[in-house]
């Protein structure tokens, strides 16, 4: 198929060159002190929930919100320390510590909530930025019907442009980078919104306001 490559590139190169336009200035919006309010409004508008917590209160708040939803089995990275914090009062916490091939059944059928950290947030669109890794793999935020994400307020950016530049994403991206703005949804049937079509039906963001 290298012949196809050569032919395609040769055809493209044979074309008359056109001008390469400059990128005109474009400044996405900034929110100053209203950043969190914007984030909340945007995420709530797409059926997400935003709860303000602190590093002292979040584990307890998480425990109650899981209890309210009847969650008995949650999945989270062990270093979040939930088992220790809950001391047997919370749901069972399962670690995603083996390859998906060995976890598939539990992930697809059993786990009721996935708990992850967010690397950052974006106020403009009410978006979470996830960089899944070995401790918090990609499917953790996707297969369970409830996704709870922890977001440090200090990582909330105005917009995607600013965040990319600040964290120099172009220098090295993870295997998979995710922008998540709300629970899974579809409007394929008569433009009527329905949630949880393939991914979580519910997304709750715990914003750590002291971090």
């Amino acid at each position: 198929m290298s012949e196809a490559r050569a032919n395609i590139l040769a055809r493209l190169r044979a074309a008359r060159r056109g001008a390469v336009p400059d990128r005109p200035d474009w400044t996405p919006p900034a929110y100053g002190p209203d950043r969190l309010a914007r984030f909340r409004a945007m995420l709530e508008a797409v059926h997400g929930e935003v709860i303000e917590v602190t590093s002292a209160t979040w584990t307890e708040r998480l425990r109650t919100l899981l209890a309210e939803r009847g969650v008995t089995t949650a999945m989270a990275a062990p270093d979040l320390g939930l088992d220790a914090a809950w001391a047997g009062r919370g749901p069972e916490v399962v670690a995603y510590d083996r390859p998906v091939e060995a976890m598939k059944d539990r992930l697809v059928h059993d786990i009721q909530a996935g708990i992850t950290r967010a690397r950052a947030g974006i106020a403009e669109t009410g978006t979470l930025v996830l960089w899944p890794d070995a401790a918090e793999p990609r499917l953790l935020s996707l297969l369970p019907p409830l996704h709870v994400a922890l977001l440090r307020l200090g990582t909330l950016a105005d917009n995607l442009s600013a965040l990319m530049a600040e964290q120099n994403w172009a220098a090295g991206l993870p295997t998979n980078l995710l922008l998540i703005s709300g629970p899974s949804k579809t409007a394929d049937i008569e433009q009527t919104l329905a949630y949880g079509v393939h991914g979580p039906k519910e997304l709750v963001v715990l914003v750590l306001t002291d971090l």
């Binding site: 797409v46 070995a134 995710l178």
Partner: peptide, 19 residues
């Protein structure tokens, strides 16, 4: 304003990654 998911894929599964 944005889709629910923006999925950016840069690699196959790397050593140590679970999925």
């Amino acid at each position: 304003p944005i889709t629910t998911y923006v999925n950016m894929i840069s690699h196959p599964r790397r050593d140590g990654e679970r999925d």
